[in-house]
Amino acid sequence: MRAFDFAAPRDIADALGLAGDTSAYVAGGTTLVDLMKLDVLAPEQLIDINRLPLHGIRLGPDGLRIGALERMEDIARHDAVAACYPLISQALLSSASPQLRNMASIGGNLLQRTRCGYFRDVATPCNKRAPGSGCPAQSGDNRGHAILGTSASCAATHASDVAVALVALDASVRLRGAAGNANARADGERTVPLADFYLRPGDTPHVENVLRPGELITEVIVPPLEWARRSVYVKVRDRQSYEFALASAAVAVDLRGGAVHDARVAVGGVGTVPWRLPAVEAALRAGQSHEAAAALAAEGARPLAGNAFKGTLVQRVILRALTELAGPR
């Protein structure tokens, strides 16, 4: 870890004013401080945002609004969240450990970095960490890597569980930057659907999202979806807890007369970004069998030597989720 300056502003304008090219916001620190210890990140200034007024979990007619600093555990245990959006609650509770969830914020969660071992080891090349240096995962240790949305430059998964659930629900993030940002309101605020927020690696895996330097996530907005009450997050991994997903599925179904009328399906552990599966949803809407619909999940997959099994696994995890919600079909 390198020496750094530290500031803990109390209001948003001050935070935005302090932010620059070499600063980093810190919320729970469970991603950032880890990566600083590993020398992967070396910001010159840390801006502690924990005093900013970015709190609150509110369920209203316009859906669910979660302040960026709300802790994972608090969101997961929130009664309204658990009742109306079980998939969010379950995705959070299947993440990390209670200690981490008590520290980690939802804003930080959405911005957590990949768990690719090369990204985290500065002795190895990695295009995401050191652009142009190469991607050893393509031929190296890649059992945990993505099969969807990959490129020759990078095949790292996006590691967040809750982002998968949020993408399934058409959630958005509210962002605040310095006033006068292009595409933003005069006060520097804009709202971006989470599905557009994340970027696939392409040739620039170091650019992971559309966040501009110094921009803050202030809130997560989940639109209303009555039938999201019937939803589930299934996470599959080698051990039963405290591990990232090999494959996961966030699924909600609108069940009418025992048949699937509509569905939301997104998967984790397999994509370079949280991966929505519109083709699977369409097949389910069209009344196709669970098997036929799930079979579309791995279309376009580009497996590496160690992770070919994820093509099968991702279908099975969707089937398992659908069976849990709608019974066998």
Binding site: R115, D238, Q240, Y242, E243
Partner: peptide
């Protein structure tokens, strides 16, 4: 769970951290 993977090309252990080298936790 346990599998300390050797990268055939580099001889580096591919999962030489406690996040990546899995040992059982209580739930297992």
């Amino acid at each position: 769970l346990e599998d300390l993977r050797i990268e055939p090309e580099t001889g580096r252990f591919g999962n030489a951290t406690m996040a990546d080298y899995l040992v059982p936790i209580n739930a297992d």
